[in-house]
Design a protein around this nucleic acid. Structure first.
Lengths: 113, 113
DNA sequence: TTGACATATTCCGATATCGGAATATGATGA
DNA sequence: TCATCATATTCCGATATCGGAATATGTCAA
């Protein structure tokens, strides 16, 4: 066996720096491929390939507008990753009153607004 | 050029499932290599190699006790990753009212229970 | 239809990865 | 010292990865 496919899970998808930059770029809203190419100074095929990976993992979605394709962030897909990390937040913030606590926080965050 | 080294940053280090399991295992406290091997049913060299990667990235530290080596979590190293994700939390929790209707859906899911 | 534009795909080479098997290192206790 | 336990390292093969170059697909406008 060898390494697991990047295309199969979010953790691997965001392990790539350029892909993270692309996601960062999409925070402000939908963008065409060309816009990303310009903004990040990457090659067009490079961007298309990264977008494909992000798309397969569900981190972005795409709609066609004329001959352009607009990609949009799907931030909800990052939630499990964020929750995985949240467990450790407890550890570094010093609150060690065990699990259960972080679940409440997540819940509160959801209701918060 | 090819892919960037796993050993060089936290994102790549935690992209591997087994390494995440090892970190999860260490949440409760220091553990010897053998204990991890038993707990996760991985081979000993496999665990040692993953620990090496985690160690090089600073996600774990190590101290010797007799002939055993006790590894300990260094959760602070996860903080930048957590912060990178936190930006997106805004997006899925609905505070970015620039985003469309799917945010409301997520919001409802959060309040739902 | 044709040509220009926007994006996606394919082919490729160099390199990294993971896991297994075997072996090396290192500490302990008899 | 020697045998044993605990861990680390090396060598290896199969496979995935990223980026570049070239090319294919698809859409518009004249």
């Amino acid at each position: 066996m060898a390494r697991s496919a990047t295309t199969s899970d979010v953790f691997n998808a965001i392990a790539e720096g350029h892909r993270r930059e692309i996601l960062d770029t999409l925070i402000t809203g939908e963008k065409a491929v060309g816009a990303i190419v310009t903004e990040l100074s990457l090659s067009q095929p490079q961007v298309s390939k990264h977008l494909r990976v992000l798309s397969e993992v569900g981190l972005v979605s795409c709609r066609a507008e004329g001959r352009r394709r607009l990609y949009r962030l799907e931030p909800a897909r990052l939630r499990p990753t964020h929750e995985w990390l949240a467990k450790y937040e407890q550890a570094w913030s010093g609150r060690l009153d065990r699990m259960g606590g972080y679940l409440k926080e997540l819940q509160e965050q959801g209701e918060e607004q």
